[in-house]
């Protein structure tokens, strides 16, 4: 355990960022990943994020449901709006070998935006308890691996080298660290903001799962296998979080 809490947030979220580098391993092993693998990878990430959203909700919502819900609606609305402005509502995160130049930029933008509320989740969890903060960082770190693998596979199929692809996939997660540290600092200074940050994180995580990760998975692999992978990942989070002291 690290004594200084801000340093702890920085370390945990930094480790979560670095774990995205592991996403390069499957991409290095196979010349071209089968589409079903990309579907399952996104399903793992979706299940973990649903589990994380549930844990945050269970930890913080009962005390201030009205503020939490308002925050959640803000988080949902913000992402809906940004996707609308950027024209990325229907963007598939996993189109292998699509050479369109716009697609590359849109992918990097969407992935960077995606990681920001995950940083808020780590930061606000840390203000609730160090254990929850560590757990949240661990769950996000694990989920970064399949998400980075999908992004690295797509970038590599567009002609980047493995190192470049893995580097770019990891770099999109820098927003996680920034938002984790900022959220923690702000909420620690103004504890009244905790339920707001919690609500925003929950709403945003739910929306990312429903709008970005799940829709296209179902086309990459069968409905049953996607649903099984996602619910398994979610169940793991619920089970492990129950071990909280």
């Amino acid at each position: 355990m690290i004594a200084d809490p801000t340093l702890a947030v920085l370390t945990y979220s930094g480790l979560a960022l670095l774990s995205a580098g592991f996403g390069a391993i499957p991409v290095a092993l196979r010349q071209r990943l089968p589409p079903s693998w990309l579907g399952w990878a996104n399903a793992v990430a979706a299940g973990l994020m649903l589990g994380v959203a549930y844990i945050l909700m269970a930890a913080g919502l009962p005390r201030t449901p009205a503020i939490g819900a308002t925050g959640a609606v803000l988080g949902i609305g913000f992402l809906y709006w940004t996707h609308g402005v950027a024209g990325t509502q229907e963007l598939d995160l996993d189109r292998l070998g699509d050479p369109a130049p716009d697609y590359g930029y849109q992918l990097l933008l969407v992935n960077t935006l995606h990681a920001a509320p995950e940083g808020i989740a780590i930061g606000v969890a840390m203000t609730l308890s160090p254990w929850l903060g560590g757990f949240m960082a661990l769950a996000i770190a694990v989920h970064n691996v399949p998400e980075a693998a999908v992004l690295a596979a797509v970038l590599k199929s567009r002609g980047l080298t493995l190192i470049q692809a893995a580097g770019a996939a990891t770099a999109t997660r820098v927003s996680q660290v920034l938002f984790a540290v900022t959220t923690f600092a702000v909420v620690a200074a103004a504890p009244g903001l905790a339920p707001w940050a919690l609500g925003v994180a929950v709403g945003a995580l739910l929306y990312l799962v429903m709008a970005e990760l799940l829709p296209h998975c179902y086309r990459q692999a069968g409905h049953t296998s996607i649903a099984l992978v996602a619910i398994l990942a979610m169940g793991m989070v619920v089970l492990l979080a129950a071990g909280a002291p």
């Binding site: 909700m57 919502l61 449901p65 009205a66 939490g68 819900a69 959640a72 609606v73 949902i76 809906y80 996707h83 609308g84 509502q89 229907e90 929950v202 709403g203 739910l206 929306y207 429903m210 709008a211 799940l214 829709p215 179902y218 409905h223 049953t224 996607i226 649903a227 996602a230 619910i231």
Partner: peptide
């Protein structure tokens, strides 16, 4: 996960489906 969502994503654009799922979920929890 296995019946309702895949059918929804097959039949309509993603953004409104995701928006409805999330808002109803939050409303139900509250």
């Amino acid at each position: 996960l296995v019946e309702l969502l895949p059918e929804a994503f097959d039949r309509a654009r993603r953004a409104p489906v995701a928006l409805i799922v999330c808002l109803t979920l939050v409303a139900m929890v509250v």
